[in-house]
Amino acid sequence: MDLTKLVEWEKSRMSHQVGRMVKRGLVAKEECPDDGRGAFIVATPAGYQAIEDAAPLHVEHVRRLFIDALTKDELAAMARISARVLEHIEKQPD
């Protein structure tokens, strides 16, 4: 899948971001055997570790800023709405 299309970024922006992540050791570029111009962007062990390290703080912030602000009924409604939107998205043509 084309990462630039997935995140809806310009190619130059994606290239700069990936370059910064490569320099930090978070991702690596691997050759794409089917497309000499393309590359696979793969998380490195350090990249996976950065995700694991960030997860607890991320969860804490989501809970404090989002989950704790809503009642149980509001959260249930949000879950129903989210499920409906996801169903709709999955039916869209690529």
Rank of each mutant, 00 (worst) to 15 (best):
M78Q: 12
R84E: 10
E52F: 06
T4E: 07
D2M: 03
V27E: 12
R37A: 03
A79L: 05
A43R: 11
M78W: 11
V27F: 12
E52T: 01
K5L: 10
Q92K: 13
G47C: 11
K5A: 10
V85W: 13
G36T: 03
D53Q: 14
S15F: 07
D34G: 00
Q17E: 15
R84P: 01
V85I: 15
D53A: 14
R37K: 03
T4G: 04
M1H: 07
A54I: 00
E60F: 11
E30M: 13
A55Q: 09
M14S: 09
G38W: 01
D34T: 02
L65N: 02
V27K: 08
L26I: 10
R13W: 05
E10L: 03
T71Y: 13
L6W: 01
F66G: 04
D68F: 09
R13G: 05
K91R: 15
L26N: 08
E87C: 14
L65H: 05
P93C: 05
H88R: 14
R63K: 08
C32L: 07
E31G: 03
E10N: 09
A55D: 01
F40V: 07
I89R: 14
G38I: 00
K11R: 05
K29R: 15
M1I: 04
Q92V: 04
D68M: 11
V18T: 10
D53H: 11
P93V: 05
Q92L: 15
V27P: 10
M21L: 15
V27A: 12
L57P: 00
A76E: 12
A46N: 14
K29C: 12
I51V: 14
Y48L: 09
E8A: 11
M14N: 02
V18P: 06
E52I: 00
F40L: 12
H88F: 14
A77H: 08
G47V: 11
R20P: 00
V7Q: 12
D2P: 01
D94Y: 02
E52N: 08
G19I: 10
Q92T: 04
P33F: 04
R13H: 11
A28M: 10
V85K: 14
R37S: 01
A43P: 09
F40N: 09
G19K: 13
D2V: 03
R37V: 00
